[in-house]
Design a protein around this nucleic acid. Structure first.
Length: 507
RNA sequence: GCGGUCGUAGUUUAGGGGUAAAACCCCUGCCUUCCAAGCAGGUGUCCCGAGUUCGAUUCUCGGCGACCGCACCA
């Protein structure tokens, strides 16, 4: 599709297809469902596995410099103290009890109004480009309205996390302009908590991991000591992570249980990290193209320096144009030596390695490409979903729904049909071919319904090819019809050629 | 978390204080020599709980879930 702005597909129709064809079910649906959790049906499980397998093959097996590991979901709680998640994976929030507005405490600013050295009141403002000016103006207005005489001092901007308890009642809500309705900042830690062992007390508290990355950092020494790795090298893993999101939204995009594919690429502290960072951004983009995401939907977003997380030297997100907007798909972060140093500090175990080239002990720096399997899953469905008009022989127009998935990740690679179900010789031959194909590929056998219906069923689950066994197959040369999903074109092909095609396209 | 809209087969919808309907899908059989054909038969539904009522899927309240806005998204 060369059209730069194809008609927007609605999330509604994608969700409906997911349900109808067994890609995604709502978790625990028979009990009314649970918000932010999803199940993968038969087609979804295949598609997801294919995404993981492609990533693992390309990222780990087909490279000499990256090893794969699998770490536990529950780790020692001190891992999350070291990583900053216990303290920092928390958004202190302030509520306005009157307007019901909620603000992030570090984005809600206030200042004392000081006249002739006396504090006469407070003003507040939300974060913007000129928060300080806004507060200054608000302070002048405050003084004028109350007809206070004297000299107004320059405002000292603070945010709500810095407010003293006795000040909170005096700070006006930005929503109402009146003081007294704001709550003190309250923390909402996004990590799921549980207890390890039979006793539920403070000492037994543990967390479900909110990211897989820390597993790689925590096992860094073990991998270095046993994995026969040399800088630069990477450690990769695929696994579930959990975040107690305040508001899960947009179907799979933000859920509370999700699966990440992360890789920590360790480089020498003197290496050109910007070059390495760029190379990984390009690698990730190429990989997305290789599983069939169109470049027209992809873009890059560089986090502005002042917005970076404290540990980050630079973060670039590969963005995807979802029906609900352009959103982050893959974050590639340059994290410096922050994580290893944190673990060195907290564990007391040195995280440095001996560098042969410089004969020095160094702590490597890291480039981290981190992506969510579920987000890729959703992107593939959004990019691949199409409803198109098809002209039939009689000149009529019909609508068909088709999922254009790359053969690499399609849940079913080939569907095998006997042209007619009531002809035993066709059925037997079709089943025989099916049996040989399924030893190596995910294939599907179907004999029920008209042949056109069977093609359309496969279109909806994204099967790239269908083969139909007909009388020619049996009576003549053994060739059968190969029907292409996207063009709907039919060609005759033999079994050896079919295997060759699959060998080339499914890797 | 706040506000709004909503919740009837797998899907899309109709209906309604007296136990529910259609189309498509799906399954079975017949038929069918390549794009959702036809005929016959079949499975399957009022989100959950409490209240009002002789009786609630329908009304009320609460919960859960979905969508849309706001806020949030280390």
């Amino acid at each position: 599709m060369s059209d730069p702005s194809p008609p927007a597909v609605s999330m509604e129709s994608i969700v409906a297809l997911c349900k109808r064809r067994g890609f995604i079910f709502q978790s625990s649906e028979i009990y009314g469902g649970i918000n932010g959790f999803f199940d993968f049906g038969p087609m979804g499980a295949e598609l997801k596995k294919n995404i993981r397998d492609c990533w693992w093959n390309d990222m780990v097996r087909r490279r000499d410099d990256i090893v794969g590991i699998e770490t536990s979901i529950i780790m020692h709680p001190r891992v999350w103290e070291a990583s900053g998640h216990v303290a920092g994976f928390t958004d202190p929030l302030v509520d306005c009890k009157v307007s019901k507005q909620r603000y992030r405490a570090d984005q809600l600013f206030f200042a004392e109004v000081v006249v002739d050295g006396q504090t006469v009141g407070y003003v507040s403002a939300l974060e913007s480009e000129n928060t300080a000016d806004q507060l200054q103006e608000a302070a002048e207005s405050f003084k004028r309205k109350r007809a206070i005489q004297g000299k107004l001092g320059a405002v000292a901007v603070r945010n709500m996390t810095e407010a003293r308890p006795e000040e909170i009642a005096l700070i006006p809500s930005p929503a109402t302009g009146q003081p007294g309705s704001l709550t003190p900042p309250r923390s909402f830690n996004m990590m799921f908590q549980t207890n390890v062992g039979a006793m539920s007390d403070a000492a037994s508290v543990a967390y479900l991991r909110p990211e897989t990355a820390q597993g790689m950092f925590a096992d860094f020494r073990a991998v270095v000591d046993t994995g026969r790795v040399k800088l630069p090298f990477g450690i990769a893993q695929i696994g579930k992570s959990f975040r107690n999101e305040i508001t899960p939204r947009n179907f799979l995009f933000r859920s509370r249980e999700f699966e990440q594919m992360e890789m920590e690429y360790f480089i020498h502290e003197d290496a050109d990290w910007q070059k390495c960072h760029r190379e990984w951004i390009n690698w990730c983009k190429d990989w997305l193209l290789s599983i069939g995401l169109p470049s027209s939907h992809l873009s890059e977003y560089n986090h502005p320096r002042e917005k970076l997380a404290f540990y980050s030297r630079g973060t670039t997100d590969i963005m995807f144009r979802y029906p609900f907007g352009v959103q982050e798909l893959w974050g590639i972060a340059a994290r410096g030596d922050y994580d290893l140093m944190q673990h060195e500090k907290h564990s007391g175990i040195p995280q440095s390695i001996f560098d042969e080239a410089t004969k020095r002990k160094i702590v490597p720096h890291v480039i981290e490409p981190a992506v969510g399997v579920d987000r890729i899953f959703l992107a593939l469905l959004c990019a691949g979903y199409a409803e198109e008009d098809v002209r039939d022989d009689k000149g009529g127009v019909e609508r068909r729904t088709v999922l254009r998935l790359s053969p690499r990740i399609a849940p079913v690679k080939v569907a095998v049909f006997p042209l007619l179900k009531n002809k035993p010789e066709l059925v037997a031959r079709a089943q025989e071919i099916h049996r040989r194909l399924k030893r190596k590929y995910a294939v599907f056998y179907d004999e029920s319904g008209a042949i056109g219906r069977r093609y359309r069923r496969q279109d909806e689950i994204g099967t790239p090819w269908c083969v139909t066994i007909d009388f020619e197959t049996i009576e003549k040369d053994g060739t059968f019809t190969l029907r292409d999903r996207d063009s709907m074109q039919q060609t005759r092909i033999g079994e050896a050629e079919l295997f060759a095609l699959l060998e080339e396209k499914v890797y």
